[in-house]
Design a protein around this nucleic acid. Structure first.
Lengths: 135, 135
DNA sequence: AACAGCTATATGCATAAAACATATAAAGGA
DNA sequence: TCCTTTATATGTTTTATGCATATAGCTGTT
C-alpha cells in the first residue's frame, strides 16, 4: 500500500508518489539490526520488515547504504563463503556505529516531535475523534 | 542546534549534516497553516516556527513549494498590492488542498509509527530509563 | 537625496538522494 | 539444461536539498 498524501491504493514504488523522503532512515534501522546481531545484506533486507519497510525494499538502497556506512566506519564487513548458497558479505557494527545509533535516536525523537506537532494541529482543526471517517 | 545523528552542536544548515530529509514536509505544514487562514509566503515562513521549523527556513524552499503546490492545484494565489510594503502573493487553500491535508495526515501517522518502531527497538536494547545519560 | 534595512518574491546551481532498472553469479531443484 | 532462489552490485534518470544571489518596493534616518 502506498501511504502517500494523495490517497492512492497501489503498491508503493510505482507511479511516483513520494511523501517526504525517509529512505535514508534505512541507515539507523540497519545499524540497530546489526547491533542485535551481525548479518549480511540480504538478511537485513528481510529483517527490515520489522521496522516498517514492507513490500518496497530496494536492494540497491540496502547495499549502497551498507557500503556507505562502511566507508564512514560505522560497520565493517568480510566475505563469508563455503556454506550453502553464494558468498555473503557479513556486516558487523563498529563502536562508531553504536555511537551513531544514539545520535540517530536523538534525531529521530526530534523528528517525531515535529510530526506530532503537525498531527496535533491537524486534529485541532479537524477534530472528530481523530479519525476523519465519522461522517 | 543540529539534531543529526552525528551528535553535532553547531547551527543547522552548516557543514552539511542532514539526517533523513524531511524538507518536503514543509508542504503539508504550509497547507495546514493556509487552512487556518490565507497568507503570503513571507508570513508562512514565520508561522512555520509553530511547527518546528526553527532557525533554518530557506525562503527558496517556501516559495518553490508554494509554486509547486499551485501547479498541483492545492493552493491558488493572487497578487495583493496597494497596502504597505511590497506586493505580496496571497495564497488560499483549494478544496483539493484540503483533501491533500487529510492524505498527508494518514501518511504522517504512518511515518510516525515507523519512527516509533525504531525508538521502541532502540529502547528495548538500550533501556536505562529511555535516556542514555544515566552512567 | 542618498543610504541602509526590512519586507517580499524568485531563480540558479551544485550536489545529494531516490526511484528504478539491470548486471552478475553461485547454488539447488526439476 | 533451465528455472528459481539467494546474494551482491552498479548505472541512469529524475527529484530534492542547500546555499547563494537577484530583484524590488517601502521605511526611516541623516
Amino acid at each position: 500500500m502506498c501511504y502517500c498524501h494523495k490517497g492512492h491504493h497501489f503498491h508503493h514504488s510505482k507511479e511516483g508518489c513520494p511523501g517526504f523522503r525517509m529512505e535514508k532512515f534505512i541507515q539507523p534501522c540497519m545499524l540497530l539490526l546489526l547491533y542485535e546481531r551481525p548479518a549480511h545484506g540480504y538478511e537485513l533486507m528481510e529483517r527490515l520488515a520489522q521496522l516498517g519497510f514492507v513490500g518496497h525494499i530496494d536492494p540497491g538502497a540496502v547495499y549502497r547504504n551498507l557500503r556507505k556506512m562502511e566507508e564512514d566506519g560505522l560497520v565493517k564487513s568480510e566475505w563469508e563463503s563455503g556454506e550453502s548458497g553464494p558468498a555473503k558479505r557479513r556486516y558487523v557494527l563498529t563502536p562508531e556505529g553504536e555511537e551513531a545509533i544514539h545520535g540517530w535516536a536523538v534525531h529521530v525523537r526530534y523528528q517525531m516531535e515535529r510530526l506530532k506537532a503537525f498531527l496535533d494541529k491537524y486534529e485541532e482543526f479537524f477534530k472528530d475523534g481523530g479519525n476523519k471517517k465519522t461522517d
